[in-house]
C-alpha cells in the first residue's frame, strides 16, 4: 500500500492541475506557490535543526537574478533552472561555512544581514542590476521549443509540479537518513553529536547548502513565471514570508510547505490587494497565533482532522 503522504501528494497534484485547467488565472498563482514551496522546504530542513533563517530571500534573489543575467546567453528553461540552483548552492556553501558556526539568534540574524547587504547592492549597483527598475526576463525556450504564452505557462507549472514532487520525495528520504536524523539531534543537544564523532557544523552546512539550492531553484522558477526580477525579491519581507509559510504549513511533513504556500498564495491574492499596507501585520498576527496556540501548523490541523478520522473509520 502507498504511504498516506504519497496519496495526499498525488491528490494534491491532480487538484492543482484541475484548478489550473478550470480557472486559468490560477495557473500563475499556483506556479508561484509551488516555487515558494520549494524554498520553504529548505527552511523546513533548517527548522528541523531548530534554526531559523531570516535571510533566505538572498537565495531566492540569487536564483532569480541568475536567470535574468544568463537568459540572453542561455535561452532554455531546462538549463537555466539547474544553473540557478548551482549558483545558489555555491553561494550557500560559502556563506554556510560562516553561518553554520552559529546557532539560534546569530544564525537567524546573520542570514538577515547577508540578505540585506545583497538587497542594497541590487538596488545601488544600477549599472549592473538596473536598480529598483529590475530586469525584464524574456520567455525562455523549453527543451528547445519557443512556446506561446499559454503552453509556456503550462510548461512552467508542470515543471514546478515535477520538481515539487521529485525534490519533496528526496527531502522526505533525507529527513529519515542519518544526516536528516542528525539534524534533529542538533536541536536537542549537539554536543552529544560531537561525542559520536560527528561534526554538527558539517551536518548543518549540508542542510544549509541544500536550502540555498532549493531557494535558488525557487527564485529561478519565480523569475520564469513573473518574467521580471527586482531587488524586492531579496527584501526581508520575502524571507519573512518563507518563514511564515513554513510555520503556517507546519514542520510535521514535507507536504506542509506546499500546503502552506498554496493556502498562503490563494489568500494573498485577495487579502494583499485589499490591505496593501497591513498585509505584514496580518501575517505577523497569524504567525503569533500559530506559535502561541497551534504550533504544528496547517499540516498538524489536517492530521488532527483527517488522519484521526481515517484511523477511527
Amino acid at each position: 500500500m502507498m504511504p498516506r503522504a504519497t496519496i495526499v501528494a498525488l491528490l494534491g497534484t491532480v487538484g492543482i492541475l484541475a484548478a489550473a485547467a478550470l480557472a486559468p488565472w490560477l495557473k500563475f498563482v499556483l506556479t508561484v506557490a509551488l516555487a515558494k514551496g520549494l524554498a520553504v522546504m529548505g527552511i523546513l530542513l533548517l527548522l528541523r535543526a531548530g534554526q531559523v533563517s531570516f535571510g533566505h530571500a538572498l537565495y531566492l534573489s540569487i536564483g532569480a537574478y541568475t536567470v535574468a543575467f544568463l537568459r540572453p546567453a542561455v535561452p532554455d528553461l531546462l538549463v537555466l533552472l539547474p544553473l540557478a540552483a548551482a549558483v545558489a548552492l555555491g553561494v550557500g556553501l560559502v556563506i554556510g561555512l560562516f553561518v553554520a558556526r552559529y546557532r539560534d539568534i546569530f544564525f537567524g540574524m546573520l542570514n538577515l544581514a547577508f540578505s540585506m547587504v545583497f538587497h542594497s547592492l541590487l538596488e545601488k549597483l544600477y549599472a549592473i542590476t538596473k536598480g529598483t527598475d529590475g530586469i525584464r526576463v524574456f520567455r525562455p525556450t523549453v527543451a528547445g521549443f519557443a512556446l506561446e504564452r499559454l503552453p509556456y505557462e503550462w510548461a512552467v507549472l508542470g515543471l514546478a509540479l515535477l520538481l515539487a514532487l521529485g525534490l519533496g520525495w528526496l527531502a522526505a528520504r533525507f529527513l529519515v537518513s542519518p544526516l536528516g536524523q542528525a539534524l534533529v539531534a542538533i536541536k536537542t543537544r549537539e554536543t552529544r553529536l560531537e561525542f559520536a564523532g560527528v561534526s554538527a557544523r558539517r551536518v548543518l552546512l549540508v542542510a544549509y547548502a541544500a536550502s540555498a539550492a532549493l531557494g535558488g531553484l525557487a527564485g529561478a522558477l519565480l523569475a520564469c513565471t513573473t518574467l521580471h526580477v527586482t531587488p524586492h525579491l531579496a527584501y526581508w519581507t520575502q524571507s519573512g514570508e518563507l518563514v511564515f509559510i513554513a510555520i503556517l504549513g507546519g514542520g510535521g511533513s514535507i507536504l506542509g510547505p506546499y500546503l502552506g504556500s498554496v493556502v498562503y498564495e490563494l489568500v494573498r491574492v485577495y487579502a494583499a490587494a485589499a490591505l496593501p499596507d497591513a498585509w505584514q501585520m496580518v501575517l505577523g498576527a497569524v504567525l503569533l497565533g500559530i506559535i502561541l496556540f497551534a504550533s504544528r501548523g496547517l499540516w498538524g490541523l489536517y492530521e488532527d482532522l483527517v488522519m484521526r478520522g481515517w484511523r477511527r473509520a
Partner: peptide
C-alpha cells in the same frame, strides 16, 4: 533504536543523505 542507530551510523558511514537511518 534511532538513538542507538545514530551512533552505529556515526561509525559505519554517516554521510548518507537519501537512505534511511534504520
Amino acid at each position: 533504536i534511532e538513538n542507538v542507530a545514530l551512533k552505529v551510523a556515526a561509525r559505519r558511514g554517516f554521510w548518507r543523505a537519501f537512505t534511511p537511518l534504520l
